[in-house]
Design a protein around this nucleic acid. Sequence first.
DNA 1: TAATATTACGTATTACGTAAAGATT
DNA 2: AATCTTTACGTAATACGTAATATTA
Lengths: 116, 116
Amino acid sequence: MTLDELKAFVSIAESGSFTNASTQLHRSQPAISRRIDLLEDELGAPLFERQGRNVILTAAGEALLPHAQTVLAAVRDGQRAVEKLNENSREVLSIAVVGTIADSYLVEALRAFQVE
Amino acid sequence: MTLDELKAFVSIAESGSFTNASTQLHRSQPAISRRIDLLEDELGAPLFERQGRNVILTAAGEALLPHAQTVLAAVRDGQRAVEKLNENSREVLSIAVVGTIADSYLVEALRAFQVE
DNA sequence: TAATATTACGTATTACGTAAAGATT
DNA sequence: AATCTTTACGTAATACGTAATATTA
C-alpha cells in the first residue's frame, strides 16, 4: 500500500469519479485507475462498484475510507509540525519570466501552485 | 513522502539504529539510509543526530514521530478492516517442500513470515 | 579494528502519460 | 454520440542490493 494509492482512493470517494480525482491530483485518468487497480489487488477486494457513470463505494471501500482519511490527515499534520520548526529558516525562490507573462499567466500559475 | 520512508523513520526511532531498522524491515542498511536521506530532503530538516553509534531524534524528528506512528497505525487498521470483510472468502496456499526441510527450516520460516 | 552510516553504481521494478479500446447512458 | 474507465505500451523515474568508502568507539 502506498500514499499515492490512498490519495487516489480518498479523492475518488470524495469527488465521486475517477475523472474528478485525476484533475484534483494532477494526474491522468489512467494513472488514477492503475492506482486503484493495484490497491484493490493488494487488499483482495474491490473498493468501488463501477456502475457506468457513478462510482459507489463497496463495503470494503466504506471500511477503508475513514482509515485512509486518517492516514492522509496524519501525513499533513506531520508535515506541518516540521514546517513550523523550519519557519525561522525560510528559503528564497527567484522566478524570472518575460514581461508579457508576468501580468497574465504567472499570477494564476502561482495561485494554483500554492493550493497544493 | 512515502509510507516506506515513514516506516524506516519510525523503525529507527523505536529501535535506536539504522542497522536494527534494516533487519526489522528486511532491507539492507543503505536502503534505509537512503529513505531517511530522501525524507529529510523533502522536509527540509534533519530527523536524526548522527553521533557515531547512537542515533538521536532532532527536534524535527520528535515533532514528526507521533504523526508518523499515527499514519502507520491507521494503515494497519485500514488493512485489518478490509481483511475482516474478506474473512468469509479465504484462499488456500499450498506449499511443497522436500521432507528434510519440513521439520527444520519450514516451521521457522513460516513463523518469521507470519510476524510481518 | 569493529561496528555503523553513507556513496557509488548497475539492474530491476514501478509510475507516468499518450493512444486506443471498452463500456455505459 | 458523449462521457467515463480500463488496457496497452514506451519512456522516465525510483528502489533495491552489492561493493566500496567514510566515520566513530
